[in-house]
Design a protein around this nucleic acid. Structure first.
Lengths: 338, 338
DNA sequence: ATGAAAGCGCTAACAC
DNA sequence: GTGTTAGCGCTTTCAT
């Protein structure tokens, strides 16, 4: 009972008293088959509980496997979960299945995952690149016709399609919102590492908004954190400056959580806040949190659509698709500067 | 340039002037190989950009594929993302990769995914069962030695391992907390459909806490919602009753979001609340949200450990592992009844 | 309408 | 230390 072999095509054929090829024909609705044969085969399949071995099929047919490899930094981060959901929505109809792994933003783990995926002959590769990753090794795969899409951040060493949020414009809009309410000293708490693409773009948006308003750029107001707790520490540190900011901009969802938690802890409702990326319960906070919302599902969908187009023969040059962000005004950004 | 064939073992062998088996030996560190041969082979592998075809290998070796199939209801729900992360943490060292798909809680989609996974000859199957699914068709696979684990909810029609939260005890503890603060009319907003395992268990916990305190069970105080908005509607409906509850219990994280959002919207800070499942920013709310926290990563880890033990030959009878919940008191449950 | 033989890319089993 | 043969489970090609 323990380790029974699974039945094969040959087993089914033997059961019916027919050749393997005939069974194959019935199951794939390939060539012709008499009604009687078809019935018998189907009956035997059901009886034996036969399920075709997809790997064996793929190997013979030679085409890629019907999977799509996706590398994310962290499976637990809802942002990436939403991206994955968007991808799945689009590829489901094509019969593609998601192969997923998390890189912890470490290039070595990212490389290990992509190598494994490639060894499986995936149909599409999608990567949210880790900081410091180099992707030139993927060139030979691209030239084999494998669609590769970088998601959320651009890759390095390989020219291919990518899908990102309007990070710079979104941050600009959020900071401009604060400036419009009279703030002149605005703190920025960003991601780590500091050369992370999204952090650089959003910081650039922060700076451009300041420049547009003719405000000076004070480096002491820019600080970075790796996790939620770090963001809390950064927040209190900024507020303890000799000349503290009257408003804060959070560079991502995790930072936003830490920042809001810290402001609640020290009961500071007078500090204006705008966060990049929406968070649950933003409306229930006091004041309700104003955010620059991303659309992770849409990012996933666009990435999937692009990759499928490539699979269908689209040979146009690599594009970068920008998914717009949206300022959702809820109150926390409208506190006026003292 | 477009659809170049990927190099095979034979290509590498030809390049070096050696047999395919020798290349295989070098790459898998199987049998012996002279230092010189090894070098030449490695050089050729690098030159041609050869990557072994894992599917071909698997088919020959006959063992299962080094993947683990995971069906979740919704990729975007952070609870399931955290479960997936816990699983990955445990199986990574064994070289197993996650194959994931979302069922939308529809039995047909769940079945489609498991069938696809099984056709790929996965090493382990993990399912968060949809309401109404039947799993008796998996019996033949179990008897082939495939470890199957139900996660978060028990499956139907198949006796196998499962890992769940202490739903009943957790809900009991949360409701008892409210009772201890003088509440006698406590509303319960649960999941839909009403026969969902987690809802039934948590409702049972709610009832047992009432019974323990000698409180009557008023059916009009129990109501259900499918999504966040529905939970908001349920919340206001409960509060509009002729004899409204003074405290509310939220049956899951999504319901909690809707409930808290609604209470904030109508500015009711006098209603005590305890939620099942933690939510981000619970500490930053006013009052801070008291929750019965689950540990999704631990659920994932336990499920993975159980499955790996089965893979390693554990033939003991099927177990149900219960991962404890933890009451986190933050304030919202301590409002005393008027 | 069906079957036989060959072969996809790889490795097990046996040579030498 | 290395090569040969056979064969995993399936499909292609060509017969019949």
């Amino acid at each position: 009972m323990a380790a029974n072999r699974r039945p094969t095509l040959a087993d089914v054929a033997r059961e019916v008293g027919v050749s393997a090829k005939t069974v194959s024909r019935v199951l794939n609705e390939d060539g012709p088959a008499s009604a009687r044969t078809r019935e018998q085969v189907l009956a035997a399949v059901a009886k034996l509980g036969f399920q075709p071995n997809l790997m064996a099929r793929n190997i013979r047919v030679g085409g890629p496997d019907t999977t799509i490899g996706l590398v994310v930094p962290d499976l637990g981060n809802p942002f990436f979960g939403a991206v994955a959901g968007g991808i799945e929505d689009v590829v489901r109809d094509r019969g593609l299945t998601l192969l997923m792994g998390s890189s912890a933003d470490e290039p070595a783990r990212e490389r290990g995952l992509t190598d494994k995926f490639l060894a499986r002959r995936i149909s599409i590769l999608m990567v949210i690149p880790s900081v410091g990753s180099d992707h030139s090794h993927l060139r030979s795969h691209r030239s084999t016709g494998l669609p590769i899409v970088f998601v959320d951040r651009p890759g390095a060493g390989l020219t291919t399609d990518s899908v990102v949020s309007s990070n710079l414009a979104g941050a600009h809009e959020g900071v401009a919102h604060l400036i419009a309410h009279g703030h002149r000293r605005i703190g920025f708490v960003g991601d780590l590492p500091t050369n992370l693409y999204t952090r650089r773009e959003r910081l650039a948006g922060y700076r451009s908004a300041l420049a547009e308003a003719g405000l000076p750029h004070d480096r002491s107001l820019v600080i970075n954190a790796h996790d939620q707790h770090g963001a809390s520490v950064c927040t209190s540190r900024l507020l303890e400056l000799a000349s503290p900011p009257t408003a804060l901009f959070a560079g991502n969802n995790i930072v936003a959580l830490g920042m809001v938690a810290e402001l609640a802890r020290i009961k500071r409702k007078d500090v204006a806040v705008v966060a990049f990326d929406d968070v649950p319960l933003a409306e229930a906070l006091e004041p309700a949190l104003t955010v620059v919302a991303q659309d992770p599902e849409e990012i996933g969908r666009k990435a999937a659509e692009t990759a499928l187009a490539r699979l269908d023969g689209d040979r146009s040059r690599a594009r970068t698709i920008t998914v717009p962000t949206r300022l959702i005004v809820r109150g926390s950004g409208e506190l006026t500067a003292s």
